[in-house]
Design a protein around this nucleic acid. Sequence first.
DNA 1: ACCTGAACACCGTTCAAGT
DNA 2: ACCTGAACACCGTTCAAGT
Lengths: 243, 243
Amino acid sequence: MTQDEQPAVGRPDRPRLTKDRILDEAVRLVERDGPRALSMRKLGERLGVTGMSLYRHISNREALMDALVDRIVDAMLERPDVRPRDDDDWRGFLTRLAHGVRQIALEQPSLFPLVATHPPSAPWLRPPLRSLRWVEAFLAGLLNRGFGDEGAVAAYRAFSSFLLGHLLLEVSARGVTTGPVDEPAPAAQAPSEVRATLDGHPALERLQPQLAEDHAESEFQASLTSLLDRLEHFNAIPQERAT
Amino acid sequence: MTQDEQPAVGRPDRPRLTKDRILDEAVRLVERDGPRALSMRKLGERLGVTGMSLYRHISNREALMDALVDRIVDAMLERPDVRPRDDDDWRGFLTRLAHGVRQIALEQPSLFPLVATHPPSAPWLRPPLRSLRWVEAFLAGLLNRGFGDEGAVAAYRAFSSFLLGHLLLEVSARGVTTGPVDEPAPAAQAPSEVRATLDGHPALERLQPQLAEDHAESEFQASLTSLLDRLEHFNAIPQERAT
DNA sequence: ACCTGAACACCGTTCAAGT
DNA sequence: ACCTGAACACCGTTCAAGT
């Protein structure tokens, strides 16, 4: 389908510009150089073409960003980490999903902030599971495992907030840039500089070493468990008694 | 202190450029026109000066953004909504803080995303309570109310994730732009357009009306209560038995 | 001491022109 | 049909020059 690239007329050198090729290259560019590096001109150049040529295939930079985020999000669906197993109960389903998304986020530290902060096309599409296909998979996964309608919808909202709050902080703390398109690296402020301004803050000064410790993984797990316990109440209503 | 503006030498027309005045105007500009509108040149113009003049007072745009976010965050500290009362126990303290920050975020929908996503100066400073003064106030507030060291630190982390996950989603769903500096408005996709692509998604099609409902307030409260219940365990250790 | 103009290297985007 | 060059309106930033 998207396989054989036959040179349109008689141009055997480069494989012909296509929305797919543009987006693939855009993903690579952001992965390599961060979101700030993604300009129409630079993207064109990497495709062996001038920036203006892109406008034949994509209406403007904004549409490019939208399509780029969609592509990243839908690519997450194909990852085995997040694919539910038939013998997962609903807790297993959500646990696998949570850790899978976290894994992906940590592997793609410059893509995830984009997914997390780029404005969705509808207000009820909540990052990071922000595509129609994702919402469908999420809802169906819970409905098939005993959840009622309201429970599944409430779970989608709570789960989104949970993922966003934890992963956006963890990924950006790990370095790289958080700002979707602008903003540079955190610049790893010189420790002495922080020390200097720590003076009038006794609690902070005493606890700074503990604050700097990284317990992201275990905190993620603890918070997830707590969330699942809470969702149990939503699930209790429709599911008279299982089996 | 920052009151009387005496015209330096003999220029009675405009009040002399100052880092404070620059930042105040920057806040106003972002509030009015969104983060995208904040350029050095436009900011200068609004101050009756060319963009280049700003470099006398601020080293570059990045430093401007850092200082701008610091100013917004520290201004939050002065708000009565978040100021703890002496008779608040730790749950009251955190509850007031949570609802206060939410209130502020909703009132300043173009400032909050900046606070939430701009890279902090240290990885252990977690948006939105991302200044030294805020962390000090948070930790001291809990330590004074029976928390131990580890409990207070763990609470800071969990509370940050909670606020970020809920408020970033709620504020950006309310409209405006989420992207810190780039990204335009969500454009409120035409309902028919969503409907069209809803076909292959039965669960989504059936639940779309419920997904579009807004229960942000009650969900925020429910999630907060659950968080507080969880923090209770951290607090149990040091606080043998209170009065 | 403080601000400006000109300049440079970048942007996004349009459109007539080339092949 | 597809890409390019020139052009326009914007950027951030530097630096010699003005007052």
